[in-house]
Design a protein around this nucleic acid. Sequence first.
DNA 1: GAAACTGACGTAACCGATTGCATTTTTTAT
DNA 2: ATAAAAAATGCAATCGGTTACGTCAGTTTC
Lengths: 347, 347
Amino acid sequence: MSEEREITIYDIAKYLNISAATVSRGLKNNPMISKTTRKKITDAAQMLGYQSNAFASNLRSRHTHTLGVIVPRLNSYFMSSALAGMENAASRYGYNLIIAQSLEDAEKEKRNVATMFNKRVDGLLISLSYNTQNINHLEPFFKRKIPVIFFDRVYPHNESTSVGINNFEAAYQVTKHLIDQGCKRIMHLGGNVLRNVYQERLDGYRKALQDHHLPFTEKLHLTGPLSEQAGEDAARHILELSPDKRPDAVFSANDTAAVYCMLALQAAGIRIPEDIAFAGFNNDPISKVIAPNLTTVEYPGDSIGHTAATYLINHLKGISDLYATNAITLRADLVIRASSLKNKHPE
Amino acid sequence: MSEEREITIYDIAKYLNISAATVSRGLKNNPMISKTTRKKITDAAQMLGYQSNAFASNLRSRHTHTLGVIVPRLNSYFMSSALAGMENAASRYGYNLIIAQSLEDAEKEKRNVATMFNKRVDGLLISLSYNTQNINHLEPFFKRKIPVIFFDRVYPHNESTSVGINNFEAAYQVTKHLIDQGCKRIMHLGGNVLRNVYQERLDGYRKALQDHHLPFTEKLHLTGPLSEQAGEDAARHILELSPDKRPDAVFSANDTAAVYCMLALQAAGIRIPEDIAFAGFNNDPISKVIAPNLTTVEYPGDSIGHTAATYLINHLKGISDLYATNAITLRADLVIRASSLKNKHPE
DNA sequence: GAAACTGACGTAACCGATTGCATTTTTTAT
DNA sequence: ATAAAAAATGCAATCGGTTACGTCAGTTTC
C-alpha cells in the first residue's frame, strides 16, 4: 500500500555522486557530458525506474511538446481520419495531441481555445464550429505568437496557415460531370455558407452552371445541417415537387445527406441514376456501400491531418516558416461511381 | 514583434498590493478569502489578461486534470464515438484528453503508455491493441496507484475496471436469432481471440450452437482482421465451397467484414437473406445503408466512452471507488434488420 | 613554464502556482 | 474596554527540471 515515491534526477545524482545538472544534461544527450558519465546516468536512470516529470521540464523550458486540436465533432469519418493523420505525424516527432470538440457550438469552442492556451500547447490545429462568426477568441494565440493552423473549415488570417483542398474546383468538377451526363436541373444540398467549405462548394457549383449556360434556381438550392435527417428532408422536398419540376441530379455537399436522400427516394420508387443522378462529397465509407455506389469527391482526411500537423511541427522546430505560407492545398479527386452514370458508354 | 510577457499571479499581487498567496487562493474561490478581495482579484486578473499556467499548478498540486486515452485506431466509427463520449464527460468536469493510437501494435502501445505516464495523466483509458500479450507495461500506473480503465478490449486485472458490453450474451442472441430463422450452417467471421471481445463473441456463438444441437464446424470459423479485404476473402472462400457445403448464414464479429462479404456474394449472384442470411456487430453506419440492411448488435461507443470517463473522474474526485468495481457492463441490443429475416412473418 | 584555452562538471537562480504555518486584522464575547 | 476567537492575509518553502555562469583539472601554445 505504500505510495511509491517519485524518482527524480536528484535521486540519480545522489546515487552517482554527481550533480543534478549533470544528470539533466546527460539524459538529454548534451554533448558537454562525457560518454562515460552519460552512460552511467542512463543506466542508473533505467535501474532506478526514473520517469521524467514533464511539468517541471515544461515549466522551465516553456514548451510542452503538445499540440491542441479542436474539431466540431470527433465522430465523423473525415474528422477521425484527420485526427489519425495528425496523431501519426505528432507521435513521430515526439508530440502529443490534446483533443477537444466544439460540438458545433461557438461558445464551447471559445472555452476549448482558452483551455488549450492555459495548458500551453505549443501550437493549435483547429476546424471551426458551424456557427463561429469570427476568430477573436484566438487572439491570445496570435499575441503570444503561438502558431495556429486551420484545417478543413478555415478562416482567412494573415498570420496563420490553412490546410485543405480546393473546394471550389472540386465542386465545379462534380457539377460539370453531372452536366456532362446530360443533367440540366441539378439540385444542391449545401451547408452553412459561414463556413468556407460550403460557400466554396456552392460557388463552384454555381460557376459550373453558369459556364454551361444553365440557370441557378433558388428552389434547387437547399441549405441545412447535411445530416441523415437533412437528406431525408431533401427527398421529401423533391417528392413534393411536381414531376416536371423535379431535379434530374442532386449534388450534396456531403455523402451522408446524399445517401439518406437516395434511400428515401428509392423507397418512393425513384430510380438512381436514371431518374435522378447523385453525387456527394467526402468519399465516406457509406458511399461505397450504397447501391448504386455514390459518385463523390475524395476528401483526404488522413493527408490533411498529417500535413497540417507536420507543417506545424516543422514550424516549431524552425525548419519552415509558417507565417510565410498562407495556404496548403491538397489534391482532391473526383471519384466517379454508378450513381451519376446516365450514359452507358461515357467517352 | 515584441513578445508579450506572461501575466502571473505575482503581477496581480503587485498590482493590488497583496500577496501572491492571496491571489492564488482568490482565483480558486477559496472561502478563506473575503468576498471583496476575491472580487478585486478576479477583476484584476480579467483586466490584466491573466491566464493560469497549468504547469506550475500541476507541478505543485501533482495532478493535471488530464486523462490519457490509448486506442488501437482513431478512425473507426466505434472508437471515434467512444472518444466523443469521453470528451463530453471529461470537458464537463474540467478534464482534458490526451489521445494516442497504438495502430494495433503492442510496441507502440508501450511507448504510448510511457508517454502518458511522463505527462502525468491523472488516469488512463485504454483499449488494447490487436496483439498485446500482457499488461506489464501498465505496471508504473498500478504502482503509483494511477487509475486505469479498460474499455472495449479489456484485460482482467483486479485493480482496474473494465467497461464494455456482454459480448458473450450478444453473440449468443445473434446466433440464436439466426437459428430461429431456420439457419443450420452458420459461419462465424471472428477476430484475434487474444482480445476478449472476439473470444467472447466466439464463445457465445458456440454456446448457442450447442444449446440448439448444432455442430461447431472448424471450416465455418474464419479468423482474421475483420477488414474490408477480410470480408471479401470470406466471400471468396464461401464461393469456393461446393453449394451443399456452403453456410446458410454468416455471423461476423464486425459490420465491415459482414458488409464487404455481402457485397462480394451479391456480385456473384447470391441472394441475401434467401440463400445466406447475415448478421454483423457494432451497428456501424454502413449497416443501415447496405441493401438489405444488416442485422447487427448495437455497440454503444458513445455510452461506453462517456461511462468510462465519468467513472474514472468520479474515482479521481473520491466520489466512487474504482478498485471496488470490477466491471461495468452496458446494454447492447440486437438490432434485427432485413439481412437475416428469412421468415416473412416472424412471430 | 606561464598564459591561454578546452572539456567536464557543479552551483544556484530560476519557472509560476500551491500550501502549511505564522501573523495581522476583524469580529465576538465578556 | 479587553480578552478570546475567528477570519483574512502574508511568508516562505516547495514541486523537479533547466541553464547561465562559475570552477577546476588537464592540454595546448609560444
